[in-house]
Design a binder for these strands. Structure first.
Length: 204
DNA sequence: GTATCGATTAGC
DNA sequence: CTAATCGATACA
């Protein structure tokens, strides 16, 4: 948890030279292993989650919904699973490349939205499964040593997003009022498979 | 082998 | 609100 908070305001860099992009971390979510039913690792190690049980300071990238990649940083020592999901960056460097990677049909996203949302963030950085396991203290993907710069913004703790289980924990952290972070969500919607069961049936 | 769901997103 | 789209998972 403290690692998640300490990442806010730090700079994440991906690539070198002409392919270098960088952004300031403005929104994260913390996941643990055992005891956190929302975590991919809560049932123990699998081929997919092995890096979550490995040493800290490495990337855990997963593929979801058949089309999106999401970037985590492993935070706990070998054998103990925990990771921080990076949910939003403020784009700082390599904006043209980020725009190109994020271009789809329709209206292009605003610059502040280029790396907003975990799937969008991974796409803007050009990340895929081959990046899972990378050492983020060296190499082409790294968290810079620059001091965290939060511009006086407070850290807000809110419930995690998009979960059916473990959603009560306020393990989502963001810089209050930052334009690159997600807009506030007032009424979390209930996933469609459980909607007919009613609000009570949703485990939180 | 089949069925279901997901740490999401864009678009209506 | 739903479609998109496929790997992981649960189960027969």
């Amino acid at each position: 948890m403290s690692v998640a908070r300490s990442l806010l305001g730090r700079v994440l860099v991906c690539g070198t030279g002409a392919s270098r992009v960088a952004g300031r971390v403005v929104e994260v979510e913390a996941y643990r292993g055992t005891g956190d039913p929302a975590s991919h690792a809560h049932l123990g190690p699998t081929p997919r989650t092995a890096v979550m049980f490995g040493p800290p300071g490495h990337a855990y990238v997963y593929f979801t919904y058949g089309m999106h990649y999401c970037l985590n940083l492993v935070t706990e020592p070998q054998g103990s699973a925990a990771a921080v999901l990076l949910r939003a960056l403020e784009p700082l460097d390599g904006l043209p490349l980020m725009r190109r990677r994020r271009a789809r049909r329709g209206v292009p996203p605003a610059d502040m939205a280029l790396a907003r949302g975990p799937g969008n963030l991974a796409r803007a950085l050009g990340l895929g499964l081959r990046d899972s396991g990378r050492d983020v203290t060296r190499g082409r993907l790294w968290v810079s040593n620059l001091p965290a710069e939060r511009a006086g913004r407070r850290v807000l703790a809110m419930p995690r997003i998009g979960l059916r289980r473990g959603a009560l924990r306020r393990w989502r952290f963001l810089l209050e009022g930052h334009p690159a972070a997600s807009p506030p969500r007032r009424t979390p919607s209930i996933p469609k498979p459980l909607r007919r069961l009613g609000r009570r049936a949703v485990r939180r």
